[in-house]
Amino acid sequence: MTTQTQTGPDPKTALSSRGGGPRADRSFQVLTLVAGLLVLAVLALILITTTREAWPALSEMGLRFITENRWDPPSNVFGGLAFIYGTAIVSLISLIFAVPVSIGIALFLTELAPRRLRAPAVTVIDLLAAVPSVVFGLWGVLVVAPKLVPIYQWFNDVLGGIPVIGSVFGEPVGSGRSFMTAGLILAIMITPIITSIAREVFDTVPRADKDAALALGATRWEMITGAVFPHSFGGLVGAVILGLGRAMGETIAVALIIGSSTQITANIFASGNAMPAVIVDQIGESTGTFTAALIGLGVVLFVMTVLINTAAQTIVRRAEIRMKGARS
């Protein structure tokens, strides 16, 4: 690259020629910028291409696409309410189980764990995140679901008679593939993400606040409720919403476990279906408007997850800024 041209020992040329000249600098910057802009391009393209392909179904069904409970591909009626309901109920169940456990683990890692235990505990959580979701699905459908049926039956026997609660804990489906099983497996899968964000949030609580609480004679738990929680509430809300976004988009495990039946029922032990699961189940044998409708479900899912993730990011960021203000 030593292009010592005929210009001779001009120091200026010698210096600039090593770097390939200002043009190289400029083009490298443009190259990196293009790579960065790719993110924006892909996001825009996702919205444009999927909406275009889904348009035949979306324009025909209009708002009924998300408000009507009738999914009948042969007669070209596509009302996906049951799938939206399934996604919502499964995500809700998974959050109910995952949030307390995740917050507990995060508290353990930041406030309780001896230094020696911290690294192995973090590794375990990382491994939990590394297991592919399809493996959880396989385990859920072949091992967990059948084993849970007797437990569901017990809940049904004990609580089934009570008027309102009874309808929630209704007759369990024989295979065990139900909203509840899908929610439980999902809970395992979203625990690592909620835990990691909750940990970051707890780490921002000022040392002085915790020491002050302990110095006033608070027990460890009183320190957590008095000093840690008030400081990290906003961040925790963000973590939970981010977990919700993950749960909604999770596809394969839910597709295997939820049981694939189009119905809206309060019974959490019954089988149902969810938006991502329907897409992956049915797109193989679909044509025409049916394909468009399935892609339409994807558009709805995309918009919902983007909204949820944006909200979560905003909340977490705002909470972080406030924390940093408190620390200084």
């Binding site: 802009l37 993110v39 996001l43 999927t50 988009g249 992956v280 994807g298 899912l301 995309f302 944006t310």
Partner: peptide, 29 residues
């Protein structure tokens, strides 16, 4: 740069099935 950063975070949260649908409609079809 801040916009790209935010959008990258949002893109991380896009469900894999949606990404599949994107390639399905932009490439496979």
């Amino acid at each position: 740069a801040r916009l790209i950063r935010t959008m990258a975070d949002i893109m991380t949260g896009v469900p894999s099935v949606v990404m599949g649908l994107f390639i399905y409609s932009a490439w496979v079809l």
